[in-house]
Structure formats: C-alpha cells, structure tokens
Nucleic acid binder design. Sequence first.
DNA 1: ACCTGAACACCGTTCAAGT
DNA 2: ACCTGAACACCGTTCAAGT
Lengths: 231, 231
Amino acid sequence: MNDEPATTAKSTRHSRADVVDAALGILDEFGLPDLTMRRLAAKLDVQPSALYWHFDNKQALLAAVADRIIAGARVRDVAEAAGDGLGTRASERASWHVTTRAEALALRDALLAYRDSAEVVSSTLALGLGAGEAHCRLAAAIASGGFDVQASEASASALLHYLLGHVWHEQQRLQADSLGVVAPGYAVHPESASDVLATGGGASPVDGTAAFEFGLTLLLGGLSQLTRVRS
Amino acid sequence: MNDEPATTAKSTRHSRADVVDAALGILDEFGLPDLTMRRLAAKLDVQPSALYWHFDNKQALLAAVADRIIAGARVRDVAEAAGDGLGTRASERASWHVTTRAEALALRDALLAYRDSAEVVSSTLALGLGAGEAHCRLAAAIASGGFDVQASEASASALLHYLLGHVWHEQQRLQADSLGVVAPGYAVHPESASDVLATGGGASPVDGTAAFEFGLTLLLGGLSQLTRVRS
DNA sequence: ACCTGAACACCGTTCAAGT
DNA sequence: ACCTGAACACCGTTCAAGT
C-alpha cells in the first residue's frame, strides 16, 4: 500500500554502510524474499545498478548483512545469563560450560533480532565470507574448559550447525504461521497453538528458547565427557 | 552449450511422479538455483503453466522433492553400520545409540545423494509438509533407549537440526569450491585442500563424515546422561 | 485429465555514459 | 567517488481456452 519507506536520507549519496542499513531494514520488515536489489535501490532512492558500485553482487551484499547481524551478539553480563535458579556461585573458577552456553544464547538472540537471519548467515558462513567470528567465540569459550584446539573447533562447528538449524526452523515456522500455511495432516500440534503455553508440566520445551536449550544441554553434556588436555 | 537433456520421454503426458523425477534430475545435475519452473517444464517438453496443474506452486513441488529425497534413507544393515572396529557384539540388547547413529548416518547419506538437498529439505521441514518421517524414525530409535516420549522427540529435533545444518554446510562448501569462490582472509584451511586428507593423526575430523560423527557423538553422549524412564 | 498461449509483474546483472 | 538509463536474459504465476 504505502510505497514510501519509513526513513530515508534522500539528498546525500550513499556508502556501503548505508546500503547494509537499508538492507537490514527491509530484512526484518518484510523478510528475505522481499530483499531484492530493486527494492533496496528504491528504498535508497537510487537506480538498481547503483548498488553494484558498492557490492560486486547480491551475495557479497548478503555477506555484509550477515556480518552485521552476528556482530550484534554482545554477551550481556555472563553472570546474568548464567544464574537462573541453580545454586548461584557453585563453581569458583569460570566454568567453561556457563560461558559457552551464554555465548550460544547471545548468538541466538542476535539472530532472532532479524527476520530470516539464520538463512542469511548460513548462506554466508559456508563461503567463509562472514560469521567466522561466531565460530571463533564459541571455540574460545569451549577451549577455556581445557579441551584441545581440535576438539574445541569441531565442537564449535557442531554447536553452530545446531544453532543455525534450530533458529532457521524457528524463523521459518514463524513466517509459515503468519502466512497461515499449515500442513493438512500435521493439524495443530502444541507448538503452533499460539498462546496456549501451558501444555504440560511447564518446564518442557514448548517455546523456542527451552527447546534450544535442551539441545544445547545435550551438546555440552557430550562435550563434558571428552578427555581434557589440562584440568 | 547442449540444450538437450539426457533423458526425456517426449510423447506421453505426465504425472506428478514424472515431474518430481525431472526435478530431482535437474537438482543433482545443476543444483537448486537452476531448478526453475521454466527449466523443469522445458525438460518435460511442456509449457511452464502445465506444471501448475500438478502442483499448486513451486513450494509444493519442492516439498514433494524433499519427501522423495528423505524416503531414500533406508537403513542398510544396522550391524554393518555399527560394527566398525569396536568390540563387535559387546552389548547384547539392541543398543539404542547404535541404531540412532545408524539412522542419522543413513539420513545424511540420503541427503548427500542429491545436490542442495539439505536446503530443500530444511525449507520444507518447518512447514510440516515433508520430512516428518525422518523425525519420527530418529525419535523412535531414541525412545528405544528408555527415554520418555517428550525427551525423545526433543532430542530427535536437536539431532535433525544438527544434521541439516551440517549437511547444508557441506553442500554449500562443495559448490563454493567448485565455483572457485574462496574467502580472501580464510585462505586455504585444511578442509578445502582437496585431496590432502592426511593432515594430522588420521582420526581427526578432516573429512565431512568424521566431522559429522563427532557432533553426533556429542549429542548421543549428552543424551546418555539423561535419566531413563525404564532401564 | 492434462496441456497451450499469452500475458502480468517481477528478478539480477552489465555497461556505457554522466557529474 | 557515486550514480543514471537502458538494455539483456531471465523469473513465478494466472487464466482462458484447447483436446
């Protein structure tokens, strides 16, 4: 209906950062399918061809977008993310699994801040273009637990794959629900029954965060069984 | 160069199955970006609009493709997939983690049989349109270990997310390498140095299968720490 | 039951040329 | 340094009409 974008600097010429800003705006307002070069150009009051001065192609643009998304993962006080009911300060030395968990949760939060972010980041990650920082942070957190570099990096990869797979699923479900696209045989299973959050006991993974943490616990549990190189 | 497809039945009219066949052909010969309705129609010697008699839209077509891909996951002798060096028949009762592992490996093999399959299946899975069978098989294998239904299903989801994330990464890396698209800063890290398989000790995750199994071991290890409902 | 023909409203990308 | 104008080779989807 309204063709006029919310905020646009009309007069000045643009930089790479401006283009990424506009792209992020389209991304979480309309989603990845609507993030086309032509729409992006229109939002910037520019011809589509102008974008190719800033970026070689759409893929390069998306890589820059992905970098900005995961750059938004700042670990808000680890203590806050950790102390959630258990025996407060049980372990003295910084326990690696707490920081790893916090790192993973922060990463997920950063992804959830933008629509279809998991798909954008995944597409980019395999090319080594962006999101390498996320892998590094996870690997460092794990390595602080005394695992050797090889195991730490492999574990970080596994964690990242799980994380992206999970968030992607969440985000796709979100937009599928909003479009009213439900499967015929699937009917209404507990997760899609919107505000009926109290299905069973209460601690079971009915919402996305709890489900994510369940898998996270599985991975960290398996990791803790590995032999350490130093205590 | 050659516009003529390898195999085409020219005269007869087509069924849904024929369309899926042709789609699978394009998928693993050229990849997902080339799997367009127009190319598919051309391969079938048909107008693009004809495809819309068989499927409501492209998404529905891709869901059918995804179903066929994961249907290809038949567990070849579990014993063969399990007995790989350890003390042969150590555990008497069918050990759940062996069958779960075999199930996951079979699923990965089925995905690796077609190019870009992970992306196709992932896109479809969240909509509940297809690939639900994969989740069921994994959940059943896990439940045989004595975990309650809730934990089994949640674990199956985590495993599936990890699996899809991993395979997607593998497949994207494959086509990225074939296109010669490498990251500037990333340089040549061990995985992309094609045939140099012997980097370190030999048992470290240098190839895709070993890397996948590492994460799988992590998840199964964490799972085994959970409390069982029955022995 | 299965398909044609023609149209609609889009895509990403290139490239000479402008300021 | 940043952008225009115009073109090229595509997309998915709809719909009346054919057999």
